[in-house]
Computed example of a mutant assay.
Amino acid sequence: MGDVIERIAETSELPASGRGGVVAIGNFDGVHRGHQAVLERALSEATTRGVPAIVLTFEPHPRSIFRPDIPLYRLTTAPVRARLLQALGFKAVIEQPFTRDFAGLDAEDFVRRILVENLGIRHVVTGFDFHFGKNRQGGPAYLMEAGERHGFGVTLVDAFRDEGTDVISSSRIRGLLCDGDVAQAAGLLGYRYTVEAEVGRGKQLGRTLGYPTANMALPASTGLRHGIYAVKLRRADGTLHDGVASFGRRPTVDEDGEPLLETFVFDFSGDLYGERCAVSFFGYLRGEEKFDGLDALVAQIRRDEDEARALLAGVTPLSQLDLLMSFTQG
């Protein structure tokens, strides 16, 4: 996928080489097809002008600040989002810390300090409903007027609709994943839903059963339906492996434990402990079940393996982004 994308902590740290470019602004949770319409327009505008294209996003997600009492199921952590942006062609992403103080900037301060002074932008691209500044006082009309005053262009991208004319949104995709419908979610994302975490040591029961697993603890707010999935695992070195994964509480052996993603990697005997891996979900096979003993569990795992192998043998990339994320080695 080429050079690693530069992840910049805040707008004031943008190097001179990134100034004077086109900036795409948004949370971009999921980097779904609607977001991609904004991002690809920014890349196009930058190419036309011969200037850098960068992304301005926010960490943590603003909703985590405004509604800390309601856990937010994020579709993409910052590292996964950065990898998606890299695959689309961006060289840098600014992950601006989103704090109460930052949220308190009025709209003009946001334009002047962030866009003009820190980024020196020539053009901004964002969604048609983008609001910014204290109490969301800045909107599309304000941004366009500010651009005229400060000398930068503005492109607003309309809502992106799927083939059924329904708007694609992060919340809609979250709902599908909560139902385990990773196939339909992939259609809206434009790539297979992917999570990333460090592989930890579990109880190693799978190894004694002949099915060693790579165990990954996902964020507590992860809303993915518990169950068994056909997956691909990408190692830190970029190599890809087919597998079958269980996400949930392991009702047969440890039903009171914390949810865990356990991936049995096909035809692999190496050690993944401590390695940061990514898992892409291709199909939902079944829900969690409590079996009457380990023999019944192992028999079902064999059936799951066969079903996952058959499903993965027939998959094809949904898009160039999906090809880069879930099919290309390296």
Rank of each mutant, 00 (worst) to 15 (best):
L312M: 05
N135W: 10
M1R: 11
H131M: 11
G34K: 01
E305G: 04
E289R: 05
K91N: 10
T165H: 14
F266A: 05
V315W: 12
V231E: 00
I70E: 15
F128H: 15
F98P: 00
A214R: 01
I168H: 01
R33K: 12
R7E: 11
R19G: 11
D29I: 00
A183I: 12
E255D: 15
A82N: 14
R235Q: 07
E117D: 13
S246H: 06
I173H: 03
T208Q: 07
V279W: 07
A186F: 07
Y73S: 09
Q320E: 15
L43H: 05
T208C: 02
D129G: 14
T11A: 11
A141N: 14
M216H: 02
V51N: 00
R112T: 04
D158S: 10
R303N: 04
R249K: 14
L85S: 12
S246E: 13
G238N: 10
T48N: 13
G180S: 07
N135M: 13
T328C: 15
L143H: 02
I54P: 01
I8E: 04
S64V: 14
G257F: 11
R33P: 08
R303F: 06
A103H: 01
Q329W: 09
Y73V: 08
H226N: 13
S319L: 07
C277T: 08
Q137D: 04
C277H: 07
Q329G: 00
A185T: 01
F282A: 00
G238Y: 12
R234F: 04
N27S: 03
I301N: 06
G138C: 02
A185N: 06
R81D: 08
F291Y: 03
R235E: 01
P219Y: 12
T77Q: 06
F98K: 02
P140A: 12
T11R: 04
A245D: 08
Y229C: 06
Y211A: 10
V182P: 06
F102Q: 00
G330V: 11
A53K: 05
E59D: 05
Y284P: 04
G248F: 04
R225Q: 14
L323W: 10
L177G: 02
F130C: 04
D162L: 08
A278D: 08
T316F: 10
I65F: 11
L261W: 03
Q329E: 02
I121G: 09
T263V: 07
K232G: 04
L72G: 03
Y142Q: 02
V315K: 09
S64Q: 15
Q300M: 12
Q300Y: 03
S280H: 06
F28W: 07
P52F: 06
G18F: 05
G257L: 13
I25K: 00
G153N: 08
G127K: 07
A92Q: 14
I173S: 06
A278M: 12
R276T: 15
P60E: 02
D295C: 08
D295F: 11
F266P: 02
G30I: 07
I70K: 14
A296W: 09
V38R: 02
G210I: 11
F132N: 02
M144V: 07
R161W: 14
T155C: 07
T57D: 05
A278H: 03
A16C: 05
G287F: 14
A308I: 01
L88W: 05
R286H: 12
F66T: 09
D256N: 14
G20H: 09
L14H: 05
I8C: 01
G257C: 13
F291C: 00
A217C: 09
V111Y: 00
G248P: 05
